[in-house]
Design a binder for these strands. Sequence first.
DNA 1: ACAAACTGACATGGCCTCCTGTCAGATGGA
DNA 2: TCCATCTGACAGGAGGCCATGTCAGTTTGT
Lengths: 214, 214
Amino acid sequence: MSTPANSAETPARTYGGRSAEDRRTERRGRLVAAAVRLLAARGEGGTTMTAICAEAGLTERYFYESFKGREAALVAALDAVADEIAVVAVAAIEGTEGTATARVHAALEALVAWVDDHPDRAHVALVESTAHPALRARRRELLGVFADLVATEAAELYGDRAWPADRARVQGLLYVAGLSELVAARLAGEVTLDAEQLVEIGSESFERLAVVTD
Amino acid sequence: MSTPANSAETPARTYGGRSAEDRRTERRGRLVAAAVRLLAARGEGGTTMTAICAEAGLTERYFYESFKGREAALVAALDAVADEIAVVAVAAIEGTEGTATARVHAALEALVAWVDDHPDRAHVALVESTAHPALRARRRELLGVFADLVATEAAELYGDRAWPADRARVQGLLYVAGLSELVAARLAGEVTLDAEQLVEIGSESFERLAVVTD
DNA sequence: ACAAACTGACATGGCCTCCTGTCAGATGGA
DNA sequence: TCCATCTGACAGGAGGCCATGTCAGTTTGT
């Protein structure tokens, strides 16, 4: 009972001028960043625990400090990239005033610009996210989130002229999935479109799908 | 020079009443079928060479008789399933008379029915096809083929009211990819739609995307 | 200065996979 | 009948990864 507070569980000492928790999260960040780089460079199959540790400059012990296993690290890497994308998309939509068309346009411009600026991370989000069961599960969730986002925006932008509510999520999923495949194909060089054309096609398709015509 | 024809390379003897080539292709077929079953049941990671051989009731030697390695077998399995789908789609389109809308409807009905009748094979085509680099490459090719098919149909069905030619392939890709993700989501139970609703959404989306409105 | 906590390098065991090789038994043609 | 071909079962090495454990050296607080 000499030392009072958190004793056994977290001896909690400062090291290198930083708290235990600080160091711990910094190591986790390095591991996640390393996993993202490896996913981009070597694919899911090459992103082994050993490789992640080597890339991060950390030893295996610290890997298990932050992750239960390889799978958890892969999912964390995907989450990190997905968060970036969500931030970019939401910021563009919320930061733009004007007509519905203009806001959709702005969101797509921001997304395409991000992909062009970060092709490696985009590859992780669009391609490697399908390579492992755990990643696929997470990708499905993320697709659903974006589909809901799209559906919500459609309702907000177009009002009663948008999808009927019961179909919004489904239509949103079709749109989001189709667009992401198109972006992935462009990223892989299989489709040659400049950013402007891609944005144009994306927003035009969105309007055609979202707005009820009859 | 006593025995004349094909000597060293292909001793070519009948066994079990069947020619050498006959037996060889039958074994290959068993291996491919086994690979498809394993892809559906255990996923790409569980579809090892050893497992394929065990499932097919053949030994490793016969595996290498037909395939250069595991990858080749995986691709062959995907091809087998993709061929089925293409046959179903083409047959439905070509076998239906009537309006453009009716033909699109018929094609989607046939595809959805096939998915419902063969959920395992559908899972291989829609989900596991993204699990391995070699499979992804093949999947991309197949998506392109279906996108072109869709683009061609759009032009044939809707004439000048369809996509402009330079965008047809791209728009087709967006549609095909979006639809396949939607079908996959339904297959996974994440989206509850009966076959009729799915067909309706699919054909409606197709018309909205394909037909120029302005 | 000294003990406790922290860090990094390394090694070991267990497991599974790919792939090759060997060997006995079954089948077909001369 | 006899030999060549075909078939199936199995063994085993090489290689990779996961997960854990050990150990010397460094930093911190007392």
